[in-house]
Every structure is written in structure tokens, then in C-alpha cells.
Amino acid sequence: MSDSTIRKMKGCNRNIVIVMYQYSVIVKSIERKLLDLRYSVDLLMGDFAKVSEKVMARPLFLVYLPKNIAADEENMASLRRIIEMVAKKDGEMVLLGENSDYADVMMQVPQAGEYEWLNRPLKMDELELVVKRHTNSHSKRILIVDDDPVYAKMVREWLKDEYSTFVVTEGTQVIKFLRQNPVDLILLDYEMPVMDGPQVFRMLKQNENFKNTSVVFLTGVAGKENVERVMELKPRGYFLKSNTREQLLDYIERKI
């Protein structure tokens, strides 16, 4: 069953598709807010197959996730299908979900980390900033690569007001992601299982398409020997995970 309401408004700067699993009063409030901001809004409920049709127009998708989604296999299967359809056309998407669901969703569907997550209950001014950033093609793009989804989410929260940010939680996903999503900077965890930061870095340098992409290593160890080992690879730089949000923003501003 679907509920699609398309409103075209003069002066809209981009289409937005709000995808919801079931009717929500909050979603209607989001729609009104976006219409006030002069966006064209399309509501899509339940019939997720239509995402593949909508993605051709390259809108921004806002997916309103049900609470405790990770405990429902059918809902998670629908989320996987939505992500696959959006990713296939290199679309943009923001997931609107409960903070308590974030880690479980990332564990079950790592590809979800490639898209921004906005915590509920939503603050409309925060939503406005997120939407404007995604509809601004001049925003710098940063990829966060870290196997700790909680830390990756924190860094994304730190950067979201200034940059378009993406997350992958495995080193093996980096090249695949970059083939469809070029970025200006990669924040790369030095120590990860399966494929660690140095392995990812060498792989990037051996690839003609990505060898010039700026890479900053994220490391939790501040010792001189560790720092020297990191810098031997000649990345753009390194950043200690113990540093603050303000320090990271200042650092990136100098590096990007």
C-alpha cells in the first residue's frame, strides 16, 4: 500500500522523497517544514519498490525508520532493498532513526553507514541544516572509515554542519564506495580487523583513480614510535582519537 503526495512549488531547488514504513504525524510535520523551505516533497509509504522509480530523478531520500527496526526481520529486509536501490543509482539519503537503534542497524546492514543518520526526536532546525547541506553541491565530502560504528557516528556528528560525511565500517568497502562516491578527504582508522588502515592506504595509492585522494589516519595511540610508524606511509596527516571536536574541525580545515 502506498501514499504518494507530490507537491510542485515554484522556486523549489530540489526534490525530496520521504520514505516511511507507516503513517506518522511527525513525517507530516517534516513535509510541512520542507514545503515552507520551498522544496518539492513526495511522500512514499509502504510500497518501497517505487524507490527504484523515484531514484532516477536523483532526489534526496529521507527514510523515516520505525522504532526497534533491527528486531524486525521484514523491516530490515525492506531497509536493505531501499539502500540497494538508492546505491545502484548513486543517490543521496538520510536515515531518520532512534539513537538506540543505530548500532544494531549498522551491525546488520553495514552499507547503512554510507548514509547520514539523524537521531529522533528530530529538531527541525537540525533537519533544515542537513537537507541544505545535502542539496548544496559545493559542500566538501569526507569519508570516515572506522570499524567502531559508535566512534564513526560521533565523528560524523562533529562534522555534519560543515561537510557532507559518509561512513564505511570495513577497509574492504573503501574502493567499492569510492567508485561511486568521490570524496575530498578520507579519515582512516589505523587499526582495523581484516584489512587495516595501512593496507587500505597502500591499496588507494596503487589505484590510478584514487591515488591522489587525501588521507588522514585516525589513531588512538599517541606514542612517538606509533606516530613515526604512521607518518612513514606519508599520508596527508594523522589525528589522535582522544582530541576534541574543535581540534578536529580546525585540523580538517587546514588539510582539505
Rank of each mutant, 00 (worst) to 15 (best):
E53F: 15
R14T: 00
K89P: 09
P235Q: 12
K132V: 13
N226F: 06
D47G: 01
M124R: 12
Q173W: 02
T169E: 14
C12W: 05
E170V: 08
K241F: 05
R156S: 05
Y39N: 15
P198K: 06
K255T: 09
N209S: 12
V27C: 07
S4P: 12
E232K: 07
L218F: 06
E157W: 08
P193H: 13
Q22R: 06
I252F: 03
L249I: 14
A103W: 02
K33W: 09
S78I: 03
F61M: 12
R80T: 10
R236S: 15
R80N: 04
T244K: 08
S78K: 11
S52K: 14
S78F: 06
G223F: 01
L188M: 04
E232L: 10
M231D: 11
S29G: 02
W158A: 03
V25L: 13
N181D: 03
F217Q: 11
T219F: 14
E170F: 02
E162G: 00
T169N: 11
S52C: 07
D47I: 02
L240M: 07
D196P: 03
G46V: 03
I83Q: 02
D104C: 04
V167P: 00
P110C: 05
D184G: 07
C12M: 04
D3C: 13
K205D: 11
I256S: 02
D104S: 12
N243A: 00
E208Y: 14
R7H: 11
K140L: 00
R38E: 00
K132P: 01
R202C: 15
V27P: 05
Y238E: 02
P66Y: 13
D147L: 06
N212T: 11
M124H: 00
F210E: 08
K67A: 02
L240G: 12
V105E: 12
E98G: 08
G113Y: 12
L37P: 11
M203E: 09
V227N: 09
G97M: 03
P59F: 01
E253D: 11
K33E: 07
M56N: 12
D250I: 01
T135Y: 15
V183R: 13
L187I: 05
R141A: 10
K8N: 08
K234T: 02
I6H: 10
E31Q: 09
V194L: 04
M56H: 08
L34F: 07
Y251Q: 15
D184H: 09
N209F: 13
G237Y: 10
S242T: 08
R58H: 05
E228V: 10
V200D: 09
R156T: 01
Q108H: 04
L248N: 00
Q108W: 01
E92G: 01
I82Y: 09
A112P: 13
A87S: 13
E128F: 12
N243K: 11
V17A: 01
I69V: 14
I142D: 00
S214F: 10
T165V: 07
E53S: 13
M124F: 10
R14N: 00
E128Y: 03
V167M: 04
E128T: 10
V221N: 05
N209L: 12
L122M: 11
D47N: 06
V150P: 01
K205P: 13
L122N: 15
R80E: 02
L60E: 09
S29L: 14
I142Y: 00
E128R: 13
